[in-house]
Amino acid sequence: MTFAIEDLFIGNIARMQRIFTDEEVKICEKLTRDNSPVYNLNEDIWKNYYDQPIVPGLLAEGLINQVISEKLPGVACLLLQKELIFYLPVYVGDIITAELEIIDINVERNWVTQKVTCINQSGSEVIKGQVVIVIVTNQN
């Protein structure tokens, strides 16, 4: 379901779940050229900080963008601002649920502010923050 800004209201919530794979991490590394050894199973440096290699933050953020583009609002929009805190690492194989809740709407500017909460399969909050998007409209 897609929404026009007039259809949105404060308190709207959308959720999606995703399991991140090692293959996705490799593709993300290739596309972003972020070759940090903390993502690589063949390196040992991650063992100093984590239980296993982690999923790049940019890849984890992709789930947030997916909720925006597919569910809330589910229409063409641009990301204006994001403020995210990564409380815990996201590991390959984790089941991450991203929940976005509308907390402000500026109809004149077509801006929507959403609270972001991501939890893992254990119910631990891994990412929290907010995003501001502008809904792109056809102006003929």
Rank of each mutant, 00 (worst) to 15 (best):
M1D: 09
T2Y: 14
F3Q: 05
F3I: 00
F3W: 14
F3G: 05
A4Q: 10
A4R: 14
I5H: 01
I5A: 01
D7R: 02
L8H: 06
I10Q: 13
G11S: 05
N12M: 11
I13T: 13
I13K: 04
A14L: 05
R15I: 15
R18A: 12
R18K: 13
F20L: 03
F20H: 02
T21W: 02
D22S: 11
E23F: 09
E24S: 04
V25D: 09
V25N: 01
I27D: 10
E29H: 07
K30C: 12
K30D: 12
L31P: 15
L31N: 08
L31C: 05
T32C: 00
R33N: 12
R33D: 10
D34S: 07
N35P: 06
N35I: 09
Y39G: 02
Y39F: 11
N40C: 08
L41P: 13
N42W: 10
E43F: 12
D44G: 12
I45V: 13
I45C: 12
W46L: 04
Y50E: 07
P53Y: 05
P53F: 09
P53T: 04
I54Q: 11
I54E: 07
G57K: 01
G57Q: 14
L58C: 15
L59Y: 03
E61G: 04
E61P: 03
V67L: 03
I68K: 02
E70N: 11
E70Y: 03
K71P: 12
K71R: 14
V75L: 05
A76Q: 11
L80F: 06
L80D: 15
K82D: 09
L84A: 08
L84E: 10
Y87A: 14
Y87N: 14
L88C: 02
P89I: 12
V92A: 03
V92Y: 04
D94P: 04
D94T: 05
D94M: 01
L100F: 00
E101A: 00
E101P: 01
I102C: 03
D104R: 02
D104K: 08
D104A: 13
D104W: 08
I105V: 07
N106M: 14
E108F: 07
R109E: 08
R109V: 08
N110Y: 02
N110L: 11
W111V: 09
V112Q: 01
V112M: 10
V112W: 00
T113K: 06
T113N: 07
T113Y: 09
T113W: 07
Q114A: 03
Q114P: 08
Q114H: 00
V116W: 03
T117V: 13
T117R: 11
T117A: 03
C118V: 04
N120T: 14
N120M: 13
Q121G: 14
S122P: 15
I127R: 09
G129H: 09
G129V: 11
G129C: 11
Q130D: 10
V131C: 10
V132M: 12
V132Y: 02
I133Y: 12
I133D: 13
V134H: 01
I135K: 00
T137K: 05
T137P: 07
